[in-house]
């Protein structure tokens, strides 16, 4: 297993945000995390990224306890794309992507050929090389998310965590971003809102409700009309799409 978590618990005050969640992702696979608003998707990703310390349970990277991996070493192998992270500073695209090289450099070391190559490759991968000199505030929402993804790729990670990366993007950019993520040969955990997109692009799905794990498995195994009713509180019919073969959800009104 590339990423494995056992019985994670995390609370804010007396409220349990994550309540006994276990999961596992095989190398190179994409795990989609689904659940209603406030079900703990972002919190789960933060625990997995080592940004919050769980009150109980453990996270393992290739069977190594996350707590025994140093901050820098972790940043060299795992990258996080946050939900709509923005800045007041009018930084340039290339500078944002260059941030991804920080874990690979020491404070006074110069900018190496390797750093330059990694930044260029990341910019190419998301199709932003020509716009590398653009400033942050001149970018559209879709471009900003691609820049964040490029920054994450410049970290040269083996594991990639994405928190609702397609929020506020138009449909063209949502599909393009998810397709791009699916094509990367990285172990990926992605929190998503759109269940149909999750079914199309993820190898495995994990359903959260009120911080608890409801189900984990392939989209076909997990998504059911009962689950849609119980967790998402909607009536739906699910059929196998004749176009892409994945489950497709029709919402009933």
């Amino acid at each position: 297993m590339s990423i494995r978590a056992e019985n994670l618990v995390w609370s804010v005050g007396k409220i349990r945000i994550i309540d006994g969640v276990s999961l596992s992702v095989r190398p190179g696979k994409v795990l989609g995390v689904l659940g209603p608003n406030g079900s703990g998707k972002s919190s789960l990703l933060r625990l997995l990224a080592g940004l919050r310390r769980p009150a109980g349970g453990q996270v393992f990277l290739e069977e190594r306890d996350l707590r025994t991996i140093g901050r820098g070493a972790l940043a060299r192998r795992m990258a996080l794309v946050e939900q709509q992270a923005t800045t007041e500073a009018n930084v340039r695209v290339r500078d944002v992507v260059s941030l991804g090289r920080i874990p690979h450099r020491s404070p006074f070391s110069g900018w190496s050929q390797g750093d330059e190559a990694a930044v260029n490759a990341a910019l190419d991968r998301v199709g932003m090389r020509e716009r590398a000199h653009r400033t942050w505030h001149s970018l559209s929402g879709g471009e900003r998310q691609r820049v964040h993804l490029a920054r994450a790729l410049a970290q040269a990670p083996r594991e990639l965590l994405l928190d609702e990366p397609t929020n506020h993007l138009d449909i063209q950019h949502q599909i393009a971003l998810l397709k791009l993520v699916g094509e990367l040969a990285l172990t990926t955990i992605v929190a998503l809102h759109d269940i149909n997109h999750a079914a199309m692009f993820c190898d495995q799905l994990l359903i959260l409700d009120g911080g608890r794990l409801v189900a984990q498995g392939t989209p076909e195994a997990v998504l059911s009309e009962a689950l849609m009713r119980q967790v998402f509180r909607v009536e739906a019919r699910i059929e196998s799409s004749p176009h892409h073969g994945r489950p497709h959800i029709h919402y009933m009104i």
């Binding site: 901050r71 972790l74 940043a75 996080l80 946050e82 992270a85 944002v96 920080i102 970290q155």
Partner: peptide, 10 residues
């Protein structure tokens, strides 16, 4: 991009 972004960069 904020504290969490910095922390995730090590």
């Amino acid at each position: 991009f904020g504290d969490d972004a910095a922390a995730s960069l090590g």
